[in-house]
Amino acid sequence: MDRDGSGGLGSASSPDVVRSIPVRSHPPHDFLSKFKQQSLPACKPVLTPSWVVATFLLMGFVFVPVGLVTLRASRTVVEIVYRYDADCVPEAFKGNKVSYIKDSSLPKNCTRALKVNKYMKAPIYIYYQLDNYYQNHRRYVKSRSDKQLLRGLEYTDSSSCKPEESNNGLPVVPCGLIAWSLFNDTYQFVRNSAKLRINRKNISWKSDREHKFGKHVYPLNFQNGSLIGGGQLDPSIPLSDQEDLIVWMRTAALPSFRKLYGRIEEDLDADDMIVVNLMNNYNTYSFGGKKKLVLSTASWLGGRNDFLGFAYLFVGSCSIILSIVFLLLHVKSPRY
């Protein structure tokens, strides 16, 4: 057998053997590779002075009218705001308001007269406003159980409701600090010796009533401890129908907030005198809070809020001023 390698298959000198040299293949120029290489077609506008001036002028001519319309809609809303937490304390307890509000044996009824300055078209929304009340406090917000609100005693883990998860070894429904501190001031309105009817239905979000609060979940062992936080709940009414609770459980983000109490579905004329019979039950004196009663109409934009209109006017005015400045600079030092 020939072992000199001249006839071997692996001989490098054999003329019949062709070596294959690997060739690196380049990836196809698809969308992904163009995107990675930042070579996609793009719009690259040239910001000439005329384009800049025209753009700022257009923004100003759009924003200023929108701001005027928005501000006008806000100003059509009629509001009556009355702070009553200080006025509804007897003179003998002006120096110690906390002891007055905590003493359940003292009467908390208070009567005040409000004058309607402008015609108020129904529906007239009744709000209670609380100031210096931090519903967004971390421990306060966490002290609730959404699963218990929906399923009741079927959900047994109420550890998130501390320190108001149980009382005398029995679970509390609804548990948590938010429900425990339920607002419980009440209002009644009289005009010309006739009581104004307050509609307290559908004051909460429909999604909350139908999907967050159980239709077969009833209050249990609620406000039975030694320390009463706020309002009571009717144990014969399911949580889905306790709309005061549903409104209160949607916590506010800011320390000053309003929550809907009800609606007056009668028009109020200018110069009408409204007698308000209220119960000053809720304790805001311990932390220096304020309580206000608000009667308000609504426009197509909602309640009264001038901020949005002023913001549009400010941006539009600044755009027009900048366009004039750029135009003067271009006239003084033109670019060719």
Rank of each mutant, 00 (worst) to 15 (best):
L58I: 14
L149N: 12
L106A: 12
E79S: 15
F222T: 05
V66M: 11
G229A: 14
L68R: 06
K147N: 14
Y82C: 02
L68T: 03
R263F: 12
S74L: 06
R200C: 11
S240H: 15
H216V: 01
Y84Q: 07
P238K: 08
S160V: 00
K147Q: 07
H137Y: 14
I246W: 02
L149H: 02
Y84M: 03
N192G: 13
I178L: 08
G225M: 05
R83A: 13
S33C: 05
A298E: 08
W51L: 13
V325S: 00
L106C: 10
S207D: 10
V52T: 08
L254Y: 15
L130S: 11
G289K: 09
Q242H: 13
T76E: 09
P171E: 12
R263Y: 15
I178S: 13
P41T: 07
L260P: 13
E210H: 00
S166C: 09
D269K: 06
E79N: 14
L260N: 15
Y100G: 06
Y84A: 02
T48M: 04
N199D: 13
V78C: 07
N202R: 05
D30K: 02
Q37C: 12
M279W: 01
S158I: 11
W180V: 00
Q223A: 00
F56D: 01
I237L: 15
C43H: 06
